[in-house]
């Protein structure tokens, strides 16, 4: 999809995030996200059976979820996944904990939080999104 040819269908706004601009297909969860709790990291695929994205791949998508989950390990894991090219292009959460923010920054994966309207409520899997962490905006095309 050529997103430059027209204005976005919707713009989400909020506080600035971290990292460079990124755009890609959205993968949207209504559950939380933790690399250790949810992923097969060899392949970047959701391996937790009860997760609503079970079997889906985070590789090359903008991952959107309401909240970051659980433990400390995601901080190392995002960087390791990025080193093998199996990390998401960007992460948009409604509420974060320090772990995922520290991990995303170390990995060079752009991350944003607290947008209005909440990204996980309005973006659908397959939508094209462009995140601009410096401006605190996310454009959505569908």
């Amino acid at each position: 999809m050529n997103t430059r040819s027209r204005d976005p269908d919707l713009v989400l706004t909020g506080q600035p995030g971290y990292g460079p601009r990124a755009e890609g297909r959205a993968l949207v969860s209504q559950h939380g996200f933790s690399a250790r709790y949810d992923l097969n990291r060899e392949r970047g695929v959701f391996s937790r059976k009860e997760h609503d994205l079970f079997g889906e791949s985070v590789v090359g998508v903008i991952l959107i979820a309401p909240v970051s989950k659980g433990g400390i390990a995601t901080s190392w894991m995002l960087r390791e996944m990025a080193s093998r090219g199996v990390a998401p292009l960007g992460i948009i959460l409604h509420s974060t904990n320090p772990v995922i923010v520290q991990g995303a920054i170390l990995a060079g994966v752009p991350i944003m939080q607290g947008l209005l309207p909440p990204a996980h409520q309005v973006v659908r899997t397959g939508d094209w999104v462009r995140m601009d962490p410096q401006q605190g905006t996310v454009g959505l095309w569908r």
């Binding site: 990291r41 433990g71 400390i72 390990a73 901080s75 960087r79 390791e80 080193s83």
Partner: peptide
């Protein structure tokens, strides 16, 4: 510091 091999893998260990 939480830094186990299962989380770090080769990239984190090099780091």
């Amino acid at each position: 510091v939480a830094a186990d091999a299962e989380a770090l893998r080769d990239d984190g260990i090099e780091f």
